[in-house]
C-alpha cells in the first residue's frame, strides 16, 4: 500500500516508491540518498521536519516535501 512519508510514525520502516516534487527538490532528495528504492527508518515525526535515517545517516525533510514522497511500509 502506498503511503506518504509525512504520515509514517516513529519506528516505522519504508521504501521509497516515487517522488512527486519539483525537479530541484527531487534532485536534492536523490543527492541526500533518498532515491527510489532507498529504505528509510523514521526516527521522529511530531512537530517540525520529519527525521529519517537512510543507511544510518540522519536526514531532516520538511513536512511539505515529505508529503510528496510516496513510500511503501516494510514490515519487520
Amino acid at each position: 500500500m502506498i503511503n506518504y512519508l509525512n504520515t509514517l510514525r516513529k519506528g516505522e520502516k519504508a521504501k521509497i516508491e516515487s517522488i512527486d516534487a519539483g525537479k530541484e527538490a527531487t534532485k536534492r532528495l536523490y543527492e541526500m540518498g533518498l532515491n527510489t528504492h532507498a529504505t528509510l527508518n523514521i526516527l521522529k515525526n511530531d512537530i517540525g521536519p520529519i527525521l529519517a535515517s537512510v543507511n544510518g545517516n540522519k536526514i531532516a525533510i520538511g513536512r511539505g516535501l515529505a508529503g510528496k514522497v510516496a513510500v511503501s511500509k516494510i514490515k519487520e
Binding site: G22, I59, I61
Partner: peptide, 10 residues
C-alpha cells in the same frame, strides 16, 4: 515562490 527543506544532521 515555493520552498523545501532537506538537511543532513551529521
Amino acid at each position: 515562490e515555493s520552498s523545501y527543506f532537506i538537511m543532513e544532521l551529521p
